Simulated scan of single mutants.
Amino acid sequence: MTAGLEKAFHRCLQRIASNAYFVMGLLAFLALPLTMTLVGAKSIDDCPIQPMIPLYLLIGGVVGSLKVSLLLYDIMHMRSLISKSVVIGDDDADEYPWRQNAHRYYVHVILSVFLFVWFVLANYWVFSVYTPNFIAPFHRPQEFCRKSLYVFAVFVLVLSHTVLVLLLCCGAWLRLCSRVSTRNDYGSDDNH
C-alpha cells in the first residue's frame, strides 16, 4: 500500500474501532448467526424435501458467529493498540498496529469467501423448493418442510440480500464521493 492510502486506512480503522455504536451493532448482529445455529440444530430433521436448509442454518450460523466474534475481538484489540500507540514517524512499523496480525486478515478472507459461497448455495437450496408443503402429505410423507424453519430461512436470505445491496450502494456512494473529492482537490482551478 502507498503511504497515503495506508494512513487513510489507519484513520478509518481508528474511527471504526473507537465507535461504540459500531461495536454495539456487531454485538446485536451476533444474535442472528446464533439464532441460525439454534434453529438449524433444533430442526435438523424437519425438512426432508430439502435437508440442506437446516444444515445451511446450522453451518452458516456457526461460521457467521465465528466471523462476528473475530471481528469483535479484532476491534477490541485495535482499540487497545490505538489507545496505547504513539505515532513516531513514517518508517515506524508500530505506526500501523494491524501489520503485526496479517494472518488474521487471511482468516477473515477465508471465512468471508466461505460465507458468500454458502449464501449462494443456500439461495439454491431454499428457493428450489419455494413454498413446499408445510404439512406432510399422506401419500408422500418425505415431501414437506416445517413452516417456521422454511420461513426463517427465507427471512435470513432476504435480510442477507438487503444487507448486501446496502453495502454495495454504500460502497458505490463512497467511491463516487472519493472521486469527486479527488477531482476537487487536484482539479483545475478556473480563477488562476
Rank of each mutant, 00 (worst) to 15 (best):
5 L>I: 13
6 E>Q: 14
13 L>W: 02
13 L>S: 11
14 Q>P: 00
14 Q>C: 01
18 S>W: 02
18 S>Q: 12
21 Y>G: 06
24 M>I: 05
29 F>L: 14
29 F>S: 15
30 L>H: 05
32 L>G: 05
38 L>G: 02
41 A>M: 10
44 I>Y: 07
51 P>L: 06
54 P>I: 05
58 L>P: 02
59 I>D: 03
59 I>K: 05
62 V>E: 03
65 S>N: 07
68 V>N: 00
68 V>G: 02
70 L>N: 00
72 L>P: 06
76 M>I: 13
77 H>D: 10
79 R>Y: 08
80 S>L: 09
82 I>M: 14
83 S>I: 00
86 V>T: 15
92 D>W: 13
100 Q>L: 09
105 Y>F: 12
107 V>F: 04
112 S>L: 04
114 F>N: 03
114 F>T: 02
116 F>H: 14
118 W>A: 02
119 F>P: 01
122 A>D: 03
124 Y>A: 01
125 W>F: 14
127 F>R: 04
127 F>Q: 04
131 T>V: 15
137 P>Q: 05
138 F>V: 15
138 F>W: 11
143 E>F: 11
144 F>V: 11
146 R>K: 09
146 R>W: 00
147 K>F: 08
148 S>H: 10
149 L>H: 05
152 F>I: 04
153 A>I: 10
154 V>L: 08
154 V>A: 12
156 V>T: 06
157 L>Y: 00
158 V>S: 01
159 L>C: 12
159 L>E: 11
162 T>A: 06
165 V>N: 01
165 V>W: 06
167 L>C: 15
168 L>T: 12
169 C>K: 08
169 C>D: 01
174 L>A: 13
174 L>M: 11
177 C>N: 12
180 V>G: 05
184 N>E: 13
192 H>M: 11
